[in-house]
Each structure stands twice: as structure tokens, then as C-alpha cells.
Design a protein around this nucleic acid. Structure first.
Lengths: 250, 250
DNA sequence: GGGTGAAATAATGTATACACAACCTCTGGC
DNA sequence: GCCAGAGGTTGTGTATACATTATTTCACCC
């Protein structure tokens, strides 16, 4: 987050948190003037922010103009998680095969060390620290691949609220043995980084895909046993189905 | 392409073709007013178009403001092709495992039939038709997966000028047995669609990845034997290396 | 002669005004 | 009572004006 907020940043962060907060869930369309007034910015930077959120998939354009909050189906979310797993796995494989930048590897190790601190064996888990360093580790995974393209793509995926590595890490989520599942995830982190360091491409890829499946597991558990918890997931407008258009311009 | 061009469309298509035409290759920064005047639009839609091209990866932002044409390394391109292969493979696998929409399958078949026409056994190849229907088939591959997310991601990838399925299909490229390579690609298309229809997920994925490697082969051949041909690739600013930043905000 | 600083110029970020399009409402007629 | 049309209202798309920031150049001092 930039130190000095430009009007655009103000609009982007403000709009994103409004959307994630579920402010416009029922709305047919977001009124630009109303939102601009609410955020204290003018329409120009707000429209830029809207464009950005559209490209992130949080909003979707309406044919006649303007945009509304995107509707996610459960399948959208599992798809997103699966695709993130594929991409992260590819990144890990690339990193292993090409040899990862030692500087970035050190940073990744540092992130994992801090997660260890967050998960201190005795005492209360520092959940906030975990989420932050977890996000940092996953971002570093993209950069370790040494490809600007995959780095950017992964960053984009990780911004998707429902596929991000931290999306369903809700302490109150009621997942059984939640703390143990975090420790399990951390062991996976270590294994992934080790595989990359040892230049074991296939192993790194498989481990990373497996790791991503944790999010799937959590999501499945939540939708089955605690559906109201997914309602608590910021901005989640879950529907079971959605009419799809199958038009094609030959 | 919309029938009635809005100012934004005018800016987007105009700017894209200017960039792809290599108009700003040496420039430190694109002047908004100058480009706006050249395209006959005002700065507002032009800036939107710039944002779009930045998200497509054709332009990149400058820290101090404004943007310039993106610089691609050869590795960027091979990476992009590989990642596209991974994503398309995933799409094909999803389509096969979930069962593809018959309507979309029919459209894909239609695209392939038209490619057959383009590759008519005797007579000159209809290269333009091939490229169009090839792009259509690859777009349909994304939609067959039945996931809005992967569909959008693939569309984004396919817009990347250097990773797109048609990027190195340059008739004059001097690839040996060029027409035969097109027929080979078409046989791969058929096999992919067949695997999807038969719901053979792994086979569909493998075939699709293999198919994507064609672009790699072509690109490798061109850079090795006809480096000047890659110069002819629209807007390609190829450099051999690039200084990377490895900063990290802990 | 070279370097540093300040001022001027130019370009971007932001705001606002205007025009056109869509939608909703209200009224009149059937 | 219901439907249709016209007018108003709301909203987006576009342009332009303004302010802020970066860059460059010139002059002065070392």
C-alpha cells in the first residue's frame, strides 16, 4: 500500500473494501456519482478503480454501461483455486528447474521463519502475522519462477478474494483442528521450498498443487458444514447456478 | 470488433496497432497528448486504452507516471508460450472431465471444418481463414472448460502478441514445410477435440500441451535461423537480457 | 570547465462540465 | 383498468480545464 495515497489509490482501496464488505450485493448497478461522493473522490479516478476491479474479476461490466459486483458460483471458486494451484505449481517447477535466485530464496525462507514464529508451539497463534507472511511466501513463489509474466499472473490470481492463499483462513471458521491444519500447511511450505532449492522440479510442482488443495478442502468443509461461514467471507455473493451465454461470433 | 466504434475502441485499436507496428519502440515514454492527437481522440479514452494495454502486458507503467512499450526478452516469450500451454491444457482437461457443452463442441468442430477448407489439399492455402479459425478454436477451448475464470485468463493470454496461438504463423517465415506444419497442427486440433468429446482428461491435457509446443518450436527456429523474421513480428522489442529488481517489502 | 540549483516548461493526475442514451414515471386515451 | 407514448430524470461516455509533479535547461558559482 503506497505511503501517500493518490486519489486513484483512495478510490481503489475504498471501492475494494466496500465491495468486499458486501456493500453493493443486491444492487443492479453501481452508481458512479454516489460511490464517488461516498469515497470523497471524483468520478475519474473512481472509474479507473472500477476498471481495475473489473479486470480483477470483482466487478463485471453491464452491457448497457456501468458495472455491478460479480456473482460467484461455488464452482467459480473451486475453479479459481484449482487454476491457482496449476499456476503456482508451474511457477514452483520453473523455479526448481531454472535455479531460484538465492536472494529471493532467502526471503522466502525468512517468510517461513516468521510463520514459525506466528505458529509458536505454545501460546496463542499470531494469526495476522501468519496471513501476512503466508501471502508474502506465495507472492515470492511467483517471483522465484524468474518470469515476469507468471509473477504478474499469480499476483492477479492471489488478489481474487476467493482463490487467494488466505481466503479461507478464518480463525473462527470452525474447521476442526484448525491450528494443526496451519502447521500442516507450513510443513508443506518448507517441503516446497526445499524441493525448489534441490532443483526437483516435478516434486516442487506436485507439492505446490497439493498445497493449493488445502484451500479446496477448507472451502468444501465450510460450504458443507458451516454455510453461514462462507457468507462471512468478504463480499461473497454465492449462488448455486447462473445462466451462461453460449453465443459465438463465427 | 464492435460495429460502431466508440472513442475508446478507436483509441484501443489505434494504439494497439501503433504499438504493434513498432511506432514507439525507442521512446522513453508515450506522450498522451501527442498520441491522442494522432489518433483523433481525447486523452480520457486514450488513457483507458493505455490502462488496457498495460493489463495486457503490451505497455508497462513507469514509476513516475505514464507508460512505455514493454520490453520482451526471448525468455519472456518462451515463458508465455509455456504458460499458455499449461492453461490451455488445464482447460482441455476440465472440458473433458466435466463434459463439454455440445453447442460449443459443435462450434469447435465447425471451426476445424473451416480450417480444413483453409488447408484445402490442392490449391493455395487460405492463410487468413486459417488464422481466424485457429484463433476461434483456441478461444472455444477456453469456453469448453465451462469456467468463466479460465476462459477470461486464456483470452488474456491469447491477446499477448507473442504467446498467441497465431503469433508465429507467418507464412513468409521460412519455416521448412510450413504448410505441412499447419496440417500437423490441424491433426492435433482434431485429436484434442476428440479426447475432450471422449472425456479423456489426461489425454486432452497432454495433447493440448504438445500442441502449444508448436509455437515454441516455430519461435526457436525463427530466432536461430531467421532472427530477422522475429524482428518482423509486430511490435517485438527483443532484448537478450534485462535487469531485474529483486526488492521485497517484508 | 564542470557541477549544482532554481526556474520554466511540459506532461500527467484529477476534477468538472456537457452531451447523449437509457430508464422510469406519469398522463392520456382506448 | 390497462396500455402506450412522451417527457423528465438519472447516468454514463467524452472532452477539456486546472493543478501538481517531474524533467530539462540555463545560469551562476566554485
Amino acid at each position: 500500500m503506497p505511503d501517500r495515497l493518490s486519489q486513484f489509490d483512495k478510490a481503489l482501496f475504498g471501492l475494494r473494501s466496500l465491495v468486499l464488505g458486501g456493500a453493493f450485493l443486491g444492487d443492479k448497478r453501481l452508481s458512479e456519482v454516489a460511490v464517488a461522493k461516498q469515497l470523497g473522490v471524483s468520478r475519474t479516478p473512481l472509474r479507473q478503480a472500477m476498471d481495475r476491479l473489473v479486470s480483477e474479476g470483482l466487478l463485471e461490466r453491464i452491457e448497457t454501461g456501468g458495472c455491478r459486483v460479480a456473482i460467484f458460483t461455488k464452482q467459480d471458486i473451486t475453479d479459481a483455486i484449482e487454476i491457482r494451484g496449476v499456476m503456482e505449481g508451474t511457477a514452483a517447477k520453473m523455479a526448481a528447474e531454472r535455479g531460484a535466485d538465492p536472494l529471493l530464496t532467502a526471503q522466502a525462507n525468512d517468510a517461513l521463519d516468521r510463520i514459525d514464529i506466528a505458529l509458536a508451539p505454545r501460546g496463542r497463534i499470531d494469526f495476522d502475522l501468519y496471513v501476512r507472511q503466508n501471502a508474502r511466501f506465495h507472492n515470492l513463489l511467483g517471483r522465484l519462477a524468474g518470469s515476469g509474466l507468471i509473477e504478474r499472473e499469480l499476483e492477479r490470481m492471489n488478489r481474487l478474494p476467493l482463490a487467494s492463499p488466505s481466503a479461507f483462513l478464518i480463525e473462527q471458521a470452525g474447521i476442526p483442528d484448525f491450528q494443526e491444519s496451519l502447521r500442516y500447511a507450513q510443513r508443506q511450505h518448507r517441503a516446497i521450498l526445499e524441493a525448489i532449492t534441490n532443483r526437483e522440479g516435478s516434486r516442487a510442482e506436485a507439492l505446490t498443487r497439493e498445497h493449493a488443495r488445502l484451500a479446496l478442502t477448507n472451502f468444501d468443509y465450510l460450504t458443507k458444514h458451516r454455510p453461514e461461514a462462507t457468507k462471512g467471507v468478504p463480499g461473497l455473493a454465492l449462488v448455486t447456478s447462473r445462466q451462461g451465454s453460449t453465443t459465438d461470433s463465427a
